[in-house]
């Protein structure tokens, strides 16, 4: 009789399994249609780095100390600065990261003495060439500043 018992129990287990999938048929879906609908990012999300804009000066605070460049394990960051005045700090002239090599460890953000680096919230980062992965942070900063000003203007008009 073990023969029939095995068949019966086996069949029963299969039906139980089908019950689980059948119940799922009527549950709400868990996926979203990505480009049409987006899930909010977590507050801690770490994208590639970018320069922070400080309110009082309206720009970054990079002093070209090159700590970030030195600490980066993957050689992502290239920082260049010039001494505009004889005395005084260097001024940042170019800040380029090669995102294709970045491992998002965040060492640069942590080591920055003026805290002028932060994680961006960018995640749509498809590129077709290596050059697409090179991000010029100064240009990005300039764009952001422009956007902010435009926003301020529209707000001012609205007000």
């Amino acid at each position: 009789m073990g023969y029939f018992k095995d068949i019966f129990n086996g069949g029963l287990s299969l039906i139980e399994g089908m019950g689980v999938t059948a119940r799922r048929l009527f549950r709400p879906l868990v996926t979203v249609q990505y480009p049409r609908k987006k899930i909010p990012l977590s507050s801690a999300y770490r994208g590639h780095i970018e320069l922070k804009i400080f309110g009082e000066s309206g720009t970054h605070k990079c002093i070209v100390c090159l700590n970030c460049e030195k600490t980066c394990p993957s050689g992502v960051i290239r920082v260049q600065g010039e001494k505009l005045k004889e005395k005084g700090p260097k001024t940042l002239t170019s800040y380029v990261i090669d995102f294709s090599r970045c491992s998002l460890c965040g060492l640069c953000v942590e080591i920055c003495p003026t805290s002028t680096l932060k994680y961006s919230r960018e995640y749509e980062l498809v590129g077709e060439t290596w050059a697409d992965c090179k991000i010029d942070l100064l240009a990005r900063l300039a764009r952001q500043v422009e956007e902010m000003e435009a926003e301020k203007k529209t707000q001012g008009i609205a007000a």
């Binding site: 868990v30 977590s42 507050s43 801690a44 999300y45 770490r46 491992s103 998002l104 460890c105 965040g106 994680y119």
Partner: peptide, 19 residues
């Protein structure tokens, strides 16, 4: 697993290679 990744994402900022 997605739920876990969301939780870990909320504290570490990434979903797979946390550091």
């Amino acid at each position: 697993r997605e739920q876990i990744l969301d939780i870990l994402d909320a504290i570490s900022g990434s979903r797979l290679t946390y550091s």
